[in-house]
C-alpha cells in the first residue's frame, strides 16, 4: 500500500497556522527587545558592577547557556507553579524566552563592550561628559555595532528554538501544527508546510537584519 500525500487539510486550516506563526513572531520579537535591554544591563553590570552583582550575572549567564531551553521552560512552568508562582503558558513562555535570550545577549554585548578602547572613554570624560552619556553615546553604539552580527544570528537561533514552547501549550506555530495533526492525522504534510514557514521566517529575519545593518550603523561601511 502506498501512502499518498494530501495537503488539503493543511490548506483548509491554513489560517490556524498563520495565527500560530504570528504568535511565534510577535512573542520572539518582544522577547528579543526586552532580552536586549536585559543583556545590555547584565553585560554592563558584569563589567563595572560590584563583586556580588558580577557573580550573580555570571551565574545567570552560565546557568542559562549550559542547560537546554526546554528544561528551563519546564522548570519555570511546572517547577515554579508547584512552588506557588502560577504562570499561564503564555506568560511562562514569554519569560523563559526573554531570560534565555538575555543571557546569550549579555555575553555577546560584553564582548562588544570590551572591544571599546579605553582611550575613547577617557577622552569623553576629559570633555566633561557624564557617565551615562558616555555609556549611551560613546560606548554602546560601537559595541552594539560590533555585536550586531552575533546578536542577530543568536536571535534567529532562539526564534527557531522557540518551537519548544508548544510543549507547555503556548499557542505558537508548532502548537497549532500539533493540534492540526491530532485532528487530521496528516502529520508529515503539516510538519512539511510548517517547516517551510519557519524556514521562510528565519530567512526573512536574516535578510531584514542584513538590510537593517547599514541603516542602523551607517559608519560601518559596506559589508
Amino acid at each position: 500500500m502506498e501512502y499518498r500525500l494530501q495537503f488539503r487539510e493543511v490548506w483548509n486550516n491554513f489560517d490556524l497556522l498563520l495565527w500560530g506563526a504570528a504568535y511565534s513572531l510577535i512573542l520572539c520579537i518582544l522577547a528579543g527587545i526586552v532580552g536586549l535591554a536585559l543583556g545590555i544591563i547584565a553585560a554592563e553590570t558584569r563589567r563595572t558592577g560590584p563583586g556580588w552583582a558580577r557573580m550573580l550575572v555570571a551565574a545567570y549567564v552560565e546557568a542559562i547557556r549550559n542547560t537546554p531551553f526546554i528544561v528551563q521552560l519546564f522548570f519555570l512552568f511546572f517547577g515554579l507553579s508547584s512552588a506557588g508562582l502560577r504562570l499561564s503558558p503564555e506568560a511562562a513562555a514569554a519569560i523563559a524566552l526573554t531570560v534565555n535570550i538575555g543571557a546569550y545577549f549579555c555575553e555577546i554585548v560584553r564582548a562588544g563592550l570590551e572591544a571599546i578602547p579605553r582611550g575613547q572613554i577617557e577622552a569623553a570624560r576629559a570633555l566633561g561628559l557624564r557617565d551615562w552619556r558616555i555609556f549611551r553615546a560613546i560606548v554602546l553604539p560601537p559595541a552594539l555595532s560590533q555585536a550586531y552580527p552575533a546578536l542577530t544570528s543568536q536571535f534567529v537561533l532562539v526564534f527557531l528554538g522557540s518551537a519548544v514552547i508548544s510543549q507547555i501549550s503556548a499557542p505558537d506555530l508548532t502548537f497549532q501544527a500539533q493540534f492540526l495533526q491530532s485532528r487530521t492525522f496528516r502529520a508529515f504534510e503539516i510538519y512539511f508546510v510548517v517547516t517551510g514557514m519557519y524556514v521562510a521566517m528565519a530567512l526573512g529575519f536574516k535578510l531584514l537584519f542584513a538590510q537593517a545593518e547599514r541603516r542602523l550603523f551607517p559608519w560601518k561601511g559596506v559589508r
Binding site: V156, L160, A163, T174, F188, Y191, T195, A202
Partner: peptide, 20 residues
Amino acid sequence: LIQSTPLLMMLFLVFFGLPL
C-alpha cells in the same frame, strides 16, 4: 536550509516522514 529549520521540526519530519 538546516540552519533555518527548527530542530524540533527536523525531528518531526524524520519521525513522521521516513515511515511514509
